[in-house]
Design a protein around this nucleic acid. Sequence first.
DNA 1: GTCTATAGACCGATAGAC
DNA 2: GTCTATCGGTCTATAGAC
Lengths: 208, 208
Amino acid sequence: MSPSKPAQRGGEPTEAQWRIINAALKLFAEHGVGGTSLRMIAGELGVTVAAVYHQYNTRDEIIYAAVESSLRQLNTIVDAAEAEPTVARARGSLLAGMVDLTTGVGRSLSAVLSDPAVTGSFSHHAGYRDLLRRMCRLLFGETVTKAARIRTATVIAAINGAATHPMLADLDDNALRGELLYLARRLQPTPSELANLLADRSVLEPPT
Amino acid sequence: MSPSKPAQRGGEPTEAQWRIINAALKLFAEHGVGGTSLRMIAGELGVTVAAVYHQYNTRDEIIYAAVESSLRQLNTIVDAAEAEPTVARARGSLLAGMVDLTTGVGRSLSAVLSDPAVTGSFSHHAGYRDLLRRMCRLLFGETVTKAARIRTATVIAAINGAATHPMLADLDDNALRGELLYLARRLQPTPSELANLLADRSVLEPPT
DNA sequence: GTCTATAGACCGATAGAC
DNA sequence: GTCTATCGGTCTATAGAC
């Protein structure tokens, strides 16, 4: 059971592994996961492919580590939001954290989590599903209804997708941050909608 | 200058080409553009790689044709919206068309247009830029300001990203359609915001 | 921890028979 | 329009020297 390489699933990456993960995330954002080879990752770091294989046994392990690294960042944001004293502050904290994560250096985070090569295998990943559920609860109340799930996915997609959209490539991060945060808040439910969300009725129906 | 293959840039694809494009779009959505080989496309169609090369000279030509096919569908939606008699109807028509395009059979459309391997090279594509500008004008007024561009990108990202999000994979299209359309409308500006959008001030500032 | 060298499969692409 | 056969290159992955 003891692995021949320093890598462990769920464990924190070593410094050498962290460098590989960062190079991989950058290239994933630029060429997609499927369009990124180990040769490219090694080249980005100025080493050979064999040196990369000394840290991870397979290509899939690198992808997995890169995704887990991104999820860890997201987890930190969710943890902080859940620690807020009020619901309103928790929502604001989560949205602000998500916007910061996608507009800052972690811009590559959005790309890897929405890559078809990743979404398929990670849709059943326990940690990922748990993270989504917690985000859904923070944004739209304790009961995770279908309508709340659609809202959560829409908020995530809006923030992530807008930050990486080529039409906005020329904008500076600060301008983007403010508008995105405002728009994300705008997708939060009004009090009258909330009743329908909790009952999992369409938001188009009148509130009870 | 006359090509040895029936393919022409900007021209309508033949039936054989259309089959290749559809198979490619399906696989792009599943494995990403970079993760899809000609062998996979040929296999999807039950033919050999050489048969595919009889329709397109290079792999890039197939990608280009697939993207152009997606843009043509989007163009049809925008044309129909622009033909509406009032601004309100035009906006509704565009949003409904976009939602239908991403939730129906064209679900794969979203994936290819947001693939890193595509966004890079198509961000300077004249037809694509023109399409985005027209969508921006339809949704947020004649003058294309920075704030309006952010809004447009956010609406596009929200619709496309939500439709393909793994968290919503179990939902039927009809339920998704209604909620997405409602949420997309929700991102449209209020009258007081509109003044700021046109002046390209932050929406957070009070209207003049 | 990094290298060279190598294996075997797959890649994009071409030539030419039917 | 589809096939087989083939090219050179790149892919993931391993073995072993330093």
